[in-house]
Simulated assay, not measured.
Amino acid sequence: MRVSTKLGAGLAAGALAWGTLTGGAVAGAQPPPQPGQQEEEGHGPGAIEVGPEGAAKAMDRLLSRDEERSRWCRGVVLPANGLNVRTGPGLHYRKVGALEHGTRVWTDWDTIQRRDGYLWVRMSQRRWIADYKLGNGNGKWYVKYFDC
């Protein structure tokens, strides 16, 4: 059984513009990870895989936080089977659900943190997503941004 809660534009000053946060399993989710293997935050195909230039651009966000630029960024969730939502920026924080493919999100790029092999961004006071998975000179975007 799938339980979902609609989140409206009013959530924490518009942290999510529109979207569905699902509780529990994501429809079409990948099989559980093998012992010792961590489940990826973005589920299924669809993330934008990048090479060294894209990886450098992603990491540059950590260094340029203090520059004057757009703080709240609009985007859409890419992985076909969803993207985990957690109570904080890291894998040790509790998973509270998943955003479905195509969900529109607003993220606060001034909150970017690098932890556990991901770049994490805050959507609201208590909701975080991994919008980028680090790799060895590459990586993958889980959110396609439109105005950042």
Rank of each mutant, 00 (worst) to 15 (best):
L21Y: 02
V26Q: 03
Q37A: 06
I48A: 03
P33T: 12
W109A: 00
P32F: 04
V50A: 11
K6Q: 12
I48V: 15
G135L: 11
N81A: 11
A58G: 09
N84Y: 02
G36M: 15
R86P: 01
D116E: 15
M123W: 00
Y142P: 02
G54K: 12
W128P: 02
D147L: 02
D108V: 02
G117D: 11
G28M: 05
G97R: 04
E39P: 08
W18T: 13
V77G: 01
Q125F: 06
S124N: 14
P31H: 09
D131I: 07
E100K: 04
A15P: 00
T20K: 09
A98K: 01
G82T: 05
V50Y: 06
P31T: 09
E53G: 07
T111C: 05
V50C: 07
A25R: 14
G117N: 10
W18P: 01
P31Y: 12
I112Y: 01
P32K: 10
E49T: 13
H101I: 01
A55V: 03
G75P: 03
R86M: 11
I112P: 00
T20H: 03
N138L: 11
A56H: 12
A55K: 06
W141C: 07
K57I: 14
A56C: 05
G36C: 05
Y132T: 10
V3H: 13
G14C: 08
N81L: 09
R71W: 09
T5R: 08
L119V: 12
V96N: 07
I112K: 00
G28K: 08
A80Y: 07
L11M: 12
G23R: 05
M123E: 15
D60A: 13
G97W: 00
R69E: 14
E49K: 08
E53Q: 15
E39A: 14
V85H: 07
A47Q: 12
D60F: 01
P31E: 15
E40Q: 13
N84F: 08
G46K: 02
R61E: 15
D66K: 01
L7S: 00
F146P: 04
Y118D: 15
L21C: 15
C73K: 01
M123K: 07
R127G: 00
G139K: 01
G8P: 02
C73H: 06
A9Y: 04
T22S: 02
G102W: 10
I112F: 00
R115A: 14
A15G: 14
N136H: 09
